[in-house]
Amino acid sequence: IRVFLPNKQRTVVNVRNGMSLHDCLMKALKVRGLQPECCAVFRLLHEHKGKKARLDWNTDAASLIGEELQV
C-alpha cells in the first residue's frame, strides 16, 4: 500500500493477513511524530479524479493491497 503522508512525505507499507490499517501504519506515523488518534486516513479514488473516501483505522489492510492512501 502506498501512503501519502503530511509534509509531502510518502511511504510504502507491507501488509500481512489480519493486519489493520492502524497496525500497518503505526511505525511510519510514529517515526514522523504523528499519532493515528490525531489523523484521518483516506483511500484515493482514481476513477473520480481528486476524490477520496475516509477509512476506519480498524479496516482490514489486506483489502487495500495495491491502493493508494492519504493520511
Rank of each mutant, 00 (worst) to 15 (best):
residue 30 K to W: 09
residue 66 G to R: 04
residue 14 N to W: 09
residue 39 C to W: 02
residue 38 C to E: 15
residue 64 L to Y: 07
residue 28 A to P: 12
residue 61 A to V: 07
residue 45 L to A: 13
residue 53 A to L: 13
residue 12 V to P: 04
residue 61 A to F: 02
residue 58 N to Q: 11
residue 45 L to C: 15
residue 62 A to L: 08
residue 60 D to V: 01
residue 63 S to N: 12
residue 38 C to L: 11
residue 17 N to L: 07
residue 28 A to H: 13
residue 39 C to A: 03
residue 51 K to F: 07
residue 59 T to V: 12
residue 21 L to W: 05
residue 24 C to T: 13
residue 8 K to N: 12
residue 63 S to I: 07
residue 21 L to D: 00
residue 66 G to M: 01
residue 13 V to R: 01
residue 28 A to D: 12
residue 70 Q to F: 14
residue 61 A to W: 04
residue 51 K to V: 11
residue 35 Q to Y: 09
residue 16 R to T: 12
residue 63 S to L: 11
residue 49 K to Y: 08
residue 68 E to N: 09
residue 69 L to N: 06
residue 71 V to D: 05
residue 43 R to D: 02
residue 36 P to C: 05
residue 55 L to N: 02
residue 51 K to N: 10
residue 50 G to P: 10
residue 19 M to N: 02
residue 27 K to M: 10
residue 7 N to M: 06
residue 60 D to Q: 06
residue 6 P to Q: 00
residue 58 N to T: 09
residue 40 A to W: 09
residue 49 K to L: 09
residue 33 G to Q: 01
residue 22 H to C: 07
residue 42 F to Q: 01
residue 59 T to M: 14
residue 52 K to D: 10
residue 3 V to I: 15
residue 59 T to D: 09
residue 19 M to R: 04
residue 70 Q to L: 14
residue 13 V to I: 10
residue 56 D to T: 07
residue 65 I to M: 09
residue 51 K to P: 11
residue 21 L to S: 03
residue 18 G to D: 04
residue 38 C to K: 14
residue 71 V to T: 04
residue 30 K to V: 12
residue 20 S to T: 15
residue 24 C to R: 12
residue 11 T to R: 02
residue 28 A to I: 07
residue 65 I to Y: 04
residue 20 S to D: 08
residue 52 K to R: 11
residue 65 I to L: 09
residue 38 C to V: 09
residue 4 F to P: 01
residue 34 L to K: 01
residue 68 E to F: 04
residue 15 V to H: 06
residue 44 L to Q: 11
residue 15 V to E: 03
residue 65 I to W: 00
residue 38 C to H: 14
residue 15 V to C: 02
residue 53 A to N: 10
residue 68 E to A: 08
residue 49 K to A: 13
residue 64 L to E: 00
residue 53 A to I: 10
residue 46 H to I: 09
residue 58 N to C: 07
residue 54 R to D: 07
residue 33 G to A: 04
residue 11 T to L: 14
residue 46 H to A: 10
residue 37 E to W: 05
residue 67 E to L: 05
residue 28 A to Q: 06
residue 67 E to T: 10
residue 26 M to A: 15
residue 40 A to P: 01
residue 66 G to Y: 01
residue 41 V to C: 09
residue 28 A to E: 15
residue 31 V to R: 13
residue 17 N to Y: 13
residue 57 W to E: 06
residue 62 A to S: 14
residue 43 R to G: 07
residue 52 K to N: 13
residue 18 G to W: 00
residue 69 L to Y: 03
residue 27 K to W: 11
residue 46 H to G: 14
residue 64 L to K: 01
residue 23 D to W: 05
residue 50 G to S: 10
residue 21 L to I: 09
residue 39 C to Q: 01
residue 26 M to W: 15
residue 16 R to Y: 07
residue 52 K to W: 13
residue 8 K to M: 09
residue 55 L to W: 01
residue 17 N to E: 14
residue 1 I to E: 02
residue 37 E to V: 03
residue 46 H to W: 04
residue 17 N to S: 13
residue 8 K to A: 12
residue 19 M to E: 11
residue 41 V to G: 00
residue 6 P to M: 06
residue 68 E to W: 00
residue 71 V to A: 00
residue 62 A to P: 03
residue 69 L to I: 13
residue 16 R to Q: 15
residue 70 Q to E: 15
residue 58 N to G: 11
residue 69 L to K: 05
residue 59 T to G: 01
residue 70 Q to M: 10
residue 29 L to F: 04
residue 16 R to V: 13
residue 58 N to S: 11
residue 50 G to Y: 12
residue 45 L to M: 14
residue 50 G to D: 12
residue 36 P to E: 08
residue 22 H to E: 12
